[in-house]
Design a protein around this nucleic acid. Structure first.
Length: 503
RNA sequence: GGUCCGUUCGUCUAGGGGUUAGGACACCAGAUUUUCAUUCUGGUAACACGGGUUCGAUUCCCGUACGGACUACCA
C-alpha cells in the first residue's frame, strides 16, 4: 500500500475553528494508524486576509489537542517550505504549462466587466458559455495579449474548463460523485498579484508533497471536480490523492454550519484556546480556558461524525488511532451538542489523577495549600464537577472561612438545641489530639448520643457552620482537611454569628 | 435560482429485507448517600413522505418534501 501522507491545511485568517480541529484530528488518526505522515501546510495565499498571530495560534492549538505534526510549518521537512506564500515561485510554471497546453488562459477583465457579465443573465458565470464575450487570450489576438502583458497590465490566469464532460470522483465517504463540467466556471488559478488561488496551490502542493489522502470539510465538495480537472491537465491523475469530504459540524439548534456567532449565543467556546482578535481586540474564550481537558474534547470531537460501531464511548487518543476507520465516517452533518462535551469532560475529570488536578489547583486557583491537602481536596471534589476550576470555586471554603451562612438551612434547622450540640462538639474537639475523618465521626456521634439528638439534625447546621453552604462533599473528610484548629475556630465564629431561632 | 450532498429517539448514533429498531447524552422517576453531586435501576422518545421491487420494506430503487454546502482575483 502506498505510504499514507495527509495534510491539514488551514489558512491563517484567524483562530482555528473547532471544526478545523476535527478535520485535523481525522487526518491525524489516519496517519497514525498507518504509520503515515501528518503534514501541516499553511495556506496563506490571500495576503489581504492574513491575520498576525493566527499561524502561531494554530500551532499551539494543535499541540494542546495532542495532534502532533511530523512535517510542515514549525517542524520543517523534505518538502519545505510549507507556507504557500513562500512557495509562490513554484506555482507560475504550472499555470504556464496549463496555458501552453490550452487548458488555461489569460484574462484581463475588470471587476466591473465581470459584474456586468454576471448581471446580464440569471445564472451567468465566467465559463464556457460566456468566456468568448470576455476580454481574454481566447478573444484577443496574440499580439494584443503580448502587448498587454508587456505593458504590465493586470491579468489573471483562468482554467479553461471543457464543455459538457462528466467529471467523476470517488469520495471515500460519499462514493462516486459526478458533475458535469458545463456547470463549472473558469476558476481563477493565478491572481493578479501573482499569488495562486487555493485551487491551484492545493493541487500543486498536494502533488509535490505526495499527499495520499485529502481529508477536508464538505464545503470543498463542489470544487472537487475542478481539482480533478487540474490533476488531469497537469498529467498527475494517476497520482491523484483520494478524497474524503467530511460532514459539517452544525449549530446545536436550528440548522446551518456551526459558527462563532451561534456558539456565542449558546454560551460555549468555539476555539480551542482563547483568541484575541488583533484587529478588534475582542477576546473569545477557548475550550482550554473554559476548563475542557484536551483528551475529553478530542474524544467528543472524534464521535461527531464517526463512531467505532461498538458501545464504548470513552476513547483515549491511542484507542482512537486503533479504532478509527474512514468507512465509519458518517455522511450527514452533526449538530454540536455541548452537553455531550460536558459529559465527556466530567468523565475525564473523574478519571484524572489527583496529582495532576492538585497541581492545577495549586497553580491556577490562587489559593495556598499543602500538596497533601490539595490532593485530598481534589480527590473529594473531582467527583462533583465538570470543570477543574469548579473544584476550587465550589471548594472555596477549604481556603477561606465563611462569613455568610446559607439562610435556608439556618432558618429551618438552626436552633437552641443545635447550638448546644455544636458547642459541645467544639468543646470535645479541643480535648482531642489530631482530627481525622474517623475520629471526627466518632466524636460527633458520642456528642450527639450524650445529648440525645439525632445526627441528622446536626449535620446540615454543622456543614453550614463550617462551610457556609447547604451542600458539599463529605463533612468528615472536610473536617480532616480543615484541621482541628480551623474547625474549632469556624465553629466558634458561627456560634457567635448565627442567630438562634427564638420560637 | 443552479449544482452537489444529506435525512433512524430532542441530540450523537448502531443496525439492516422478517429485530421487542440497540447504545450514549439530555430529560423524567425510583434507590443509595448526613446534604448536593456522583453512582445504580427503571422510564418517555426515532426509521421525513409517496410510489415502486418483494411473500415481506425502516433497510433496495425512483420521486417528493425538508435541510445543508457551494455558487469570489476567500480559503
Amino acid at each position: 500500500m502506498k505510504e499514507i501522507r495527509v495534510r491539514f491545511a488551514p489558512s491563517p485568517t484567524g483562530a482555528l475553528h473547532i471544526g478545523g480541529v476535527r478535520t485535523a484530528l481525522y487526518n491525524y488518526l489516519l496517519a497514525r494508524q498507518h504509520n503515515g505522515t501528518m503534514i501541516l501546510r499553511i495556506e496563506d495565499t490571500d495576503q489581504g486576509r492574513f491575520v498576525p498571530g493566527a499561524e502561531e495560534y494554530i500551532l499551539q492549538s494543535l499541540a494542546w489537542a495532542g495532534i502532533t505534526i511530523d512535517e510542515g510549518v514549525g517542524v520543517g521537512g523534505p518538502h519545505a517550505p510549507y507556507r504557500q506564500s513562500e512557495r509562490k515561485h513554484l506555482y507560475q510554471q504550472y499555470a504556464q504549462k496549463l496555458v501552453a497546453d490550452g487548458n488555461a488562459y489569460y484574462a484581463f477583465d475588470t471587476e466591473v466587466e465581470i459584474a456586468a457579465m454576471r448581471k446580464a443573465s440569471p445564472n451567468a458565470q465566467y465559463d464556457t458559455a460566456t468566456r468568448l464575450q470576455m476580454k481574454n487570450s481566447l478573444t484577443l489576438s496574440a499580439t494584443e495579449v503580448e502587448q498587454k502583458l508587456a505593458a504590465g497590465e493586470k491579468y489573471v490566469i483562468r482554467l479553461q474548463v471543457p464543455a459538457n464532460q462528466e467529471v467523476t470522483l470517488n469520495d471515500l465517504i460519499r462514493g462516486e460523485v459526478t458533475f458535469n463540467s458545463s456547470q463549472l466556471d473558469d476558476k481563477v488559478l493565478m491572481k493578479s498579484d501573482g499569488m495562486p488561488t487555493y485551487h491551484l496551490a492545493n493541487v500543486v502542493d498536494d502533488y509535490l508533497m505526495k499527499i495520499s489522502h485529502v481529508i477536508r470539510g464538505e464545503e470543498w465538495l463542489p470544487s472537487a471536480p475542478l481539482h480533478v480537472l487540474l490533476y488531469r491537465f497537469l498529467g498527475w491523475e494517476n497520482d491523484m490523492p483520494q478524497f474524503a469530504h467530511l460532514p459539517l459540524l452544525l449549530k446545536p439548534d436550528g440548522n446551518g454550519k456551526l459558527s462563532k456567532r451561534a456558539a456565542d449565543q449558546m454560551g460555549f467556546p468555539i476555539f480551542p484556546l482563547t483568541w484575541k482578535d488583533p484587529a478588534t481586540g475582542e477576546v473569545a474564550k477557548g475550550f482550554k480556558e473554559t476548563g475542557y481537558l484536551p483528551e475529553a474534547l478530542i474524544n467528543f470531537l472524534a464521535f461527531l461524525g464517526w463512531n467505532p460501531g461498538t458501545e464504548q464511548e470513552i476513547f483515549s487518543m491511542d484507542e482512537l488511532i486503533k479504532a478509527f476507520s474512514m468507512e465509519r465516517i458518517n455522511k450527514a452533518g452533526a449538530k454540536f451538542d455541548i452537553q455531550k462535551a460536558q459529559w465527556y469532560n466530567q468523565q475525564y475529570i473523574k478519571a484524572a489523577s489527583n496529582e495532576a488536578l492538585a497541581d492545577r489547583l495549586l497553580n491556577e486557583s490562587g489559593f495556598m495549600a499543602t500538596l497533601e491537602n490539595a490532593v485530598k481536596i481534589v480527590s473529594i471534589m473531582k467527583e462533583r464537577v465538570t470543570f477543574p476550576q469548579e473544584i476550587w470555586e465550589q471548594g472555596k471554603f477549604f481556603f477561606t472561612a465563611p462569613t455568610t451562612f446559607d439562610q435556608t438551612v439556618v432558618s429551618k434547622k438552626w436552633n437552641d438545641e443545635v447550638e448546644k450540640t455544636l458547642a459541645a462538639f467544639k468543646e470535645a474537639l479541643t480535648k482531642e489530639g489530631t482530627l481525622n475523618a474517623i475520629s471526627a465521626k466518632q466524636i460527633l456521634e458520642s456528642v450527639t448520643a450524650s445529648l440525645n439528638i439525632g445526627t441528622g439534625k446536626i449535620m446540615q447546621p454543622l456543614r453550614v457552620a463550617l462551610t457556609g453552604n447547604a451542600s458539599g462533599p463529605d463533612l468528615m473528610i472536610t473536617m480532616e482537611i480543615l484541621g482541628k484548629d480551623e474547625v474549632i475556630r469556624r465553629l466558634g465564629y458561627a456560634l457567635g454569628a448565627i442567630q438562634v431561632n427564638k420560637s
